[in-house]
């Protein structure tokens, strides 16, 4: 019983939690090898065979989904196509500079279709736009956190100057003492690193 108690107490130590968690997860991933896994081929937003469009020398490979600019929509198989009235239009749209690039070289399909219009825009902005809101919010929040820490703490240059002044003063004052101390002290500091 006391052993269990000790174990339970050890589990309450924050340092051990990530390790415990990763162990549990790793063990569970091994279970995944026993589970029958197969891809259901009836997916939404399917795409053609890899390299098929390149072999056909389509200048828009690998994101060519048909359609004509501002006229006919491209082919998109969405979950609820009734919720998105103009589905496929974005995929079929190309900005003027994209048309220019298309006429220059047949090997720039990716960049053509990641400029406004194109498949990813269709999915990211139109049919699943809410996901992208969240995604960019996550990025923004992490930047808020990081930049707040940077500005107020880890990179506070004003404080750095103040501190360096202080430490210089202290240094001049205690130059003798610090000379004596530094030997002991720095060795103790660096011992941990080795």
């Amino acid at each position: 019983m006391s052993k269990i108690g000790k174990l339970w107490n050890a589990l309450a130590n924050p340092d051990r939690i990530p390790k415990l968690y990763s162990l549990v997860l790793a063990a569970f991933l091994l279970v995944g090898f026993l589970v029958p896994i197969s891809l259901d081929t009836n997916q939404i937003y399917p795409r053609p065979v890899p390299q098929e469009q390149v072999d056909e020398e389509s200048p828009l490979a690998p994101y060519d989904r048909g359609g004509k600019v501002l006229k006919t929509p491209g082919i998109i198989k969405a979950q609820y196509s009734e919720n998105s009235k103009s589905i496929g239009m974005i995929t079929s749209y190309m900005s003027p500079q994209a048309i220019l690039v298309q006429s220059i070289s047949p090997y720039f399909g990716t960049s053509i279709y990641s400029s406004p219009g194109g498949l990813i825009d269709e999915v990211l902005y139109y049919s699943r736009g809410f996901d992208t809101i969240l995604e960019s919010t996550i990025l923004m929040m992490s930047f808020v956190i990081a930049s707040w820490l940077v500005v107020n703490f880890t990179m506070n240059t004003r404080r750095a100057e103040k501190d360096s002044k202080n430490s210089k003063k202290a240094n001049i004052k205690n130059i003798n003492i610090s000379k004596n101390i530094s030997k002991i002290d720095s060795s103790s500091l660096n011992k941990e690193e080795e």
């Binding site: 699943r128 809410f130 996901d131 969240l134 995604e135 919010t137 996550i138 929040m141 707040w148």
Partner: peptide, 25 residues
């Protein structure tokens, strides 16, 4: 209230990162 699986995971990821941020200061 969201009805999409991936959306929920994204919301949860957002919650996680913001939670860290709240105590990071």
């Amino acid at each position: 209230i969201t009805g999409d699986l991936f959306n929920i995971t994204l919301f949860i990821a957002l919650i996680g990162i913001v939670n860290v941020g709240i105590v990071s200061a």
